[in-house]
Amino acid sequence: MIEVKNLEKSFGDSKVLKGITTTFETGKTNLIIGQSGSGKTVLLKSLLGIHTPDKGTISFDGRIYSDLTDDERRELRTEIGMVFQGSALFDSMTVEENVGFPLKMFTTKTPAEIKERVDIVIERVKLIDANHKKPSEISGGMQKRVAIARAIVNNPKYLFCDEPNSGLDPKTAIVIDNLIQEITQEYNITTVINTHDMNSVMEIGEKIVFLKQGILAWEGSKKDIFKTDNEAIVDFVYSSNLFKKIRKAQNKEEI
């Protein structure tokens, strides 16, 4: 479980995060949603320690990040997997080398042991025939799978994904979403996902945190979304006509 208390972050004069308090639960897919520019990436990067918050605390199962020594932070980071918005694969390395990289850097595993583990996760994300290709030689959807494989190869306790299905067709997007959810449940990981894709919200939104201009405007599960009267989230979700219809239909069923 990751607990965030009163998190604030500014860049120069602009305050991007204005006091966020929430928790991200273990074994669940926690979604951060909000409009472009609402601060999702900044929140995620603050959780990761790429940005240093101005105020507030982040605790990883009781370990308060700002209180940790450098060594403890490094230790914590080896428990974190991250899937970046653009995959961020190392383009000088093959798929196999990308996935094995965290093991090569941070474990004492032999090359044979690394190879074995890499094969397992590559199979887990259903990548076929790509082991020796460079990232530039595979499709965007495959790159996402490689990024997920690299993120989970070292058995992380925490998994962060920044818009894991942006740039993918809706079908592939759902496959990737489901893959992340399955892995989360399978290995009991605390997973935090940034998205502005309503399909993802409906598919895997076990816990949803809605950001609006750096403020946490609403939180709940995908079921709660249909019932809430919170204007901000209703406005965000029902900016699409399709979802207006779904909401109506859902509400009728309940009555």
Partner: peptide
Amino acid sequence: GTMRVTEQIDALEVMGV
């Protein structure tokens, strides 16, 4: 620079490199 803009450097940092 390419590693910076494609977040490969962030990826290294996040891993603890």
